[in-house]
Amino acid sequence: MDEPLLRVAHLSKSYGPRVGCADVSFDLWPGEVLAVVGESGSGKTTMLNAVSTRLEPTAGTVSYRMRDGAWRDVFAMSEAERRFLMRTDWGFVHQNPADGLRMSVSAGANVGERLMAVGDRHYGNIRASAIDWLGRVEIAEDRIDDQPRAFSGGMRQRLQIARNLVTRPRLIFMDEPTGGLDVSVQARLLDLLRGLVSDMGLAAIVVTHDLAVARLLSHRMMVMKDGRVIEHGLTDRVLDDPRAPYTQLLVSSILQV
């Protein structure tokens, strides 16, 4: 147990001469939520995509401790292994639910897809799991056969979360999970996410530009600017006592209600 789940070392991604992210290193432990903050263009999404193998990094390594305890370099895995990992032990929650959902298949099938992908061939069981997960993300059972197009933004986002969690992953990546939602919906989603993360002991990397979201969800925080990590520490330490001038600027820019 007392070993990290994910190790990122000197990860860099450049687009030609342009730096996406540079020399990012961190460990992530089971059950830990790491927030990555920074303004648009700071490289946080590039970093997230590189760590989650959605982008090939230019340099650096990402190691993951598999369920059997063995450490694997995720970029040295075969594509089949990597994709299997991504749809079983990992999850990815996109900012725009349409990117993470199949908009033209029913909510139930969206949740059940991962189960079918790992070989579940019993309709009744798949449907029961889908109903269970819809319930956990506060979607009424009678919406199970509706397509996500008929859902509101908040419901779509919750559906996307259920779809990712149905295989009980150990690590989940989230890119601005509450972006684009109005505040009451956002609050509900944050509440839900917090509960799921603690109930399931999920480790998570949450990219957000919203410092309030980072404070509520995360244990640790990384501040990025121009592709580099400029500050890293306990979330409330970074927010209450920011060290880097840029973080101080960021914290002082929060709107107060």
Partner: peptide, 16 residues
């Protein structure tokens, strides 16, 4: 977290 009931706010350190 907004929207969480007072009772759960108080109970949270224990559930954690």
């Amino acid at each position: 977290v907004p929207r969480v009931a007072a009772l759960d706010v108080v109970a949270e350190p224990l559930t954690a």
